[in-house]
């Protein structure tokens, strides 16, 4: 169905999955991304998930809601989620739009995200 370059990549680093969204996703693609990610958490026995949205110029209400849903599902599968790379304009727009709620754990960039996950792992339940 999709023959172009990958819209999303999901890479594993230790017990962490790093999912990068490379381009604006439409709703269908967003939902597929969500399903892929949740499935891979089980496959790789991931304890942490980083979603990199640095390439996105817009996070509208649907996208924010989907990200929150991903984080919630990941939590139920035993993984913590950190969203990294929200651009300053996007952050501004999310607050104005009213979708900047506190349900998402975020970090500035990938480095901070990994550090945050490490902290969460230490303070959370014993690692397997």
């Amino acid at each position: 169905m999709n023959t172009g370059p990958a819209l999303v990549s999901i890479l594993r680093q230790g017990s962490t999955l790093v999912a990068s969204i490379h381009t604006a996703l439409n709703d269908t693609e967003m939902v597929r991304f969500q399903q892929d990610l949740i499935r891979q958490i089980g496959e790789h026995r991931a304890r942490g998930v980083i979603i990199d949205v640095a390439a996105l110029d817009v996070l509208d209400s649907f996208a924010s809601r989907t990200l929150r849903a991903v984080a919630e599902m990941a939590r139920l599968r035993g993984a913590s989620t950190v969203v990294v790379g929200i651009q300053p304009e996007v952050a501004y727009a999310m607050v104005e739009l009213g979708t900047g709620g506190d349900a998402l754990t975020t970090a500035l960039d990938l480095e901070d995200g990994l550090a945050l996950l490490a902290d969460l792992g230490q303070s959370g339940p014993a690692r397997g």
Partner: peptide, 20 residues
């Protein structure tokens, strides 16, 4: 400017989604 571009694009996205 950059911020306004994102605000406009976000507003368009919201309203277009209502149509769908």
């Amino acid at each position: 400017d950059g911020v306004d571009l994102t605000l406009i694009a976000t507003a368009v996205s919201e309203m277009a989604r209502n149509i769908v």
